[in-house]
Amino acid sequence: KAYSTFVGPITSTRFMEKGQLTPEEFVGAGDKLVDKCPSWKWCGAADGKEGVHKAMPKEKRFLVMSGARCERRAGDLTGDMGGDVELEGDEEGWTCTHKDHVASKVEEMPSMDDDAAAVPAKAAEPEELDEDDIPDMDMDMDAEVAVVDEDEDPAAVCTNTVVPARRYDIHILYDNYTYTPRVYLNGYGETGEPLSNEAMYEDIYSDYADKTATIETHPYTGASMVSIHPCRHAETMKRMIDKLREAHETRIAAEKDGASSSEQEFGISPDMSLFLFLKFISSVIPTIDYDFTASVDIS
C-alpha cells in the first residue's frame, strides 16, 4: 500500500511491454467489454465514497457480471485436462487449463409456432480474437426457487425446467499495486443460498486454490469474496500478448508467401485487454461459464 501511495498510478501505457494497464486504459477496456458484452456493467462505490481508485470516474469503479452458471466443480475436470498448456517462461507460472473447454451450451429459442421439441443446443465455436466479431454473452437463468404458494394463488407459476446450477457474480477491479485487473467472486448455491468459502474453492482449479485464491473484503461492497491474487497477472498477460503477436506474424508471413496478402494490423490493444484477461482467468475458474466472448489460441 505504502509502495503504491509513494509511486502513484502509472500514467503511460505499459500494456505491450509489461502487460500492465493505466487506470484510464482499464476504464477504456471496461467500456469496450460493457459495449460488446451487455451482461457486464460498471458499478460505483455503494456509499458514493472515493474509495481506492481516485483516478477513475466515480461511477466506473468496478465491473460486474452476475449470474454466471457453474454446473460442474473444478475437481470434476480431473482426467479431462488434455487441453493444458504451460505458458513459457516460468515453471511456477500460469497454466492455461482446458484450452479446448467450450462454454456450456445455450439453448436456442424455438419459434412459439413450432410444435417441435427443444432445438438441440449449439456450442460456441472457438475462433480468433477479433474486435469486430465478438459474440455476445447469453446465459440462461433458472428459476429453481419456488416463490409463491400456488395453492393460494392459482394464477402463479414457478418454472422449473432448467437444470439447477451454482451461480457466480464476477467483479473485476483495477489493482493499484500490480496495475492489472483483479477478479473477485461471489457464489450462490442451486437454491440461491450464498456459498461458503470452502464451497467456492471447489470451483477454483486446485493448482490455484491454494496459491492465488484468497478471501478478501471487496473495497466497495464490503462483502467478503474470493479473490484471485493479481501478482502474476501482468507477466501472464504479457506472455499471452507475445504468443498472439507471434501467431499474427506467422500468419502474415504465410500470406505473403501465398497469393493473398491482407496485411492486417496486430489487433491487440489495451482496450481489448479485458477479453484477454478473462480468457486466462477462465483457466483458474474453468467451470464458471462467463466467457462467451472469444477464444484465443495461445498454444
Binding site: K41, A118, D140, A143, T161
Partner: peptide, 27 residues
C-alpha cells in the same frame, strides 16, 4: 429481460440498491 427460453431472470438487490440506481445497458 429474459435471455433464453424457459428462463426467469431474478430481481436482484445488490450493493447498489441503496444508492441512486445505476442500471446497466440491458438492465
Amino acid at each position: 429481460a429474459a435471455r433464453s427460453p424457459n428462463c426467469v431472470e431474478k430481481l436482484e438487490l445488490t450493493g447498489e440498491s441503496f444508492a441512486a440506481p445505476n442500471a446497466g445497458a440491458y438492465e
